[in-house]
Amino acid sequence: MFDWAYPNQDTLAAELHQHIVETAFPCVGAKAALARGTLEVLAARDLASAWDDVRIHDRLLHFAAAYREKPALFRSLAIVFEQPVTLTEARFERLLWDRVQSLSDKDVWRGQSYDDSVSADPGDPHFSLSFGGEAFFVVGLHPAASRPARRFPHPTMVFNLHDQFEVLRAQGKYEGMREKIMVRDEALAGSRNPMLARHGEASEARQYSGRAVDADWQCPFRYKGEA
């Protein structure tokens, strides 16, 4: 596992770190993860290729196991792809779901169970992805994002553990943190993000790519194991 590093690992990780520390960047959770040293970054070749999918899935399994062993808030795993840097929002969305499908298929192939605290159906309001038995929420970043908060020079998939949101809810901190992020995002973009919804109100799959989708949008992901 992790027997080699992408040649530009340090450069791409440094770019993401610098992006997050910018004052205008609205996600206080990402800022907290970076400050605590709990933001892991894995550089990869190409969002349009399956070349690094096994290596990415290895890291997801390790990340999930480490969280179970020592739960902690504000832990995220960011996969930064060097290419492609010329994208439309629609193409980024297609490629993001291609990678999600491939990674999920590997989870099934490797005999990992789906986190039973969430649904595997992307049309279900309680949907989340699952890798290594842990539920994940994905945030996509790319150069052509219409929302400024989602713009980054390289296509990126940030995997956030769903359990962390439940812990924040239990501590009574979730709503305050969510509102703080939305206020900061509104200050950056001039409007509130219409795609944001609480878990259980609408499927979070609609939020992953960052593209504004209509009510008829159908998620291309299909879980191929037994949930």
Rank of each mutant, 00 (worst) to 15 (best):
D105I: 00
F165H: 09
S191C: 11
A145L: 04
R36V: 00
L161H: 03
A149Q: 14
Y114C: 03
F81N: 07
F159T: 03
P155W: 02
L47I: 14
C27P: 04
Q18G: 11
P143I: 12
E15M: 12
D115Q: 09
M157I: 08
F25C: 05
E166K: 14
E134S: 13
R147L: 12
R75H: 04
F81D: 00
H57I: 05
S117C: 15
A212D: 13
G111W: 07
V28M: 14
D105L: 01
A202M: 13
E69H: 13
G210W: 07
A135K: 07
S119Q: 03
G210T: 09
L16E: 02
S119F: 02
E186H: 12
A212T: 14
I20M: 01
R192Q: 13
W97I: 08
F63V: 09
H19F: 10
L61S: 12
P125Q: 06
V21D: 06
L87I: 05
R36H: 11
F136R: 02
R91P: 01
V80G: 00
G37L: 05
L60S: 05
A72S: 11
A215Q: 12
W51F: 13
H57L: 09
G132E: 03
A44Q: 03
E166T: 13
L161W: 02
P155T: 03
K31T: 09
A50M: 10
F137Y: 15
Q18P: 00
V138N: 04
R150P: 02
V28C: 10
L196A: 08
Y6F: 15
A24D: 14
F127H: 11
G210P: 08
G210L: 10
E186L: 07
